[in-house]
Amino acid sequence: MSDPGPPPATPTDAERDELRRQGILLTSMEELYNWGRSRSVWPLNFGLACCAIEMMAASMARFDIARFGSEVFRPSPRQADLIIVSGTVTKKMAPQVVRLWNQMPEPKYCIAMGACAISGGPFKQGYNVLKGIDRYIPVDIYIPGCPPRPEALLHGLMQLQEKMRGQRLTGPEAPPHMQPGAACDYPVPAFGAHDLEPPKNPELWQPPVLVRKEGA
C-alpha cells in the first residue's frame, strides 16, 4: 500500500472564504456547535432587585436583547441556559438560587449582574445580604454597575458569547458538561441560627489570602 502522506494542513481563512464562495462550508464540529449555542442563549426569567428592571429594559424594544439570540426568557430553569443573577442575593434567597442553578441542565452559564451579585454591593454590611453569589455557584461573567446600563448587560452577554465560542470540546479545558466525571450539583446552604450554613462553598470561593506587613 502506498504511503497516505502527511495530514493536510489546516486551511487558512482565505482558503475557507474561497471555498465558501464556491458553496462549500468547511468548519469543525466545535466551531459549529459553539457558534450555534452561543447565538441562542436563553436566559432564565430571574430578577431579584433593581438590576432586574435594567435587565427588563435590555429585553425591551430600545435595547433589544433578542437580536443577540436571547429572544425568550424562560420561566423554568429546566429550559434555560443562562442565569443572570440581577440584584442583591440575600441569605434567605441564596438556597433558592443554588437550587435553581442545580436544576438548570448543562451547558449552563451564570452572569453576576450588578455590584450586589458580585460582592454584596452597597448592602455588603448586612446581616441578611450574601456577599456575592460566587460564594455558592460558579460565575462566568461579572458586570459591574449599580445598576449597569442595559448596554453593559449586552456587552456582558457578548463577552459570554465569545467565551462560549472559545470553549474547547475535548481535552482538559473542556467545559463541565463535556467532562464525564464533573460534579453537577452544588450543595444548597441551610438556614442556621445566625447565618447560612455553610457561609460559603469552600471549593468554590475563598477570601483572598493576604499577609500583613508588620506595622501595617
Binding site: 434567605k92 433558592q96 446581616y127
Partner: peptide, 11 residues
Amino acid sequence: FGYLHRNHEKI
C-alpha cells in the same frame, strides 16, 4: 417576605 431584606434601616 424577606427574600430581598437588605437591612436598609440598619444601614
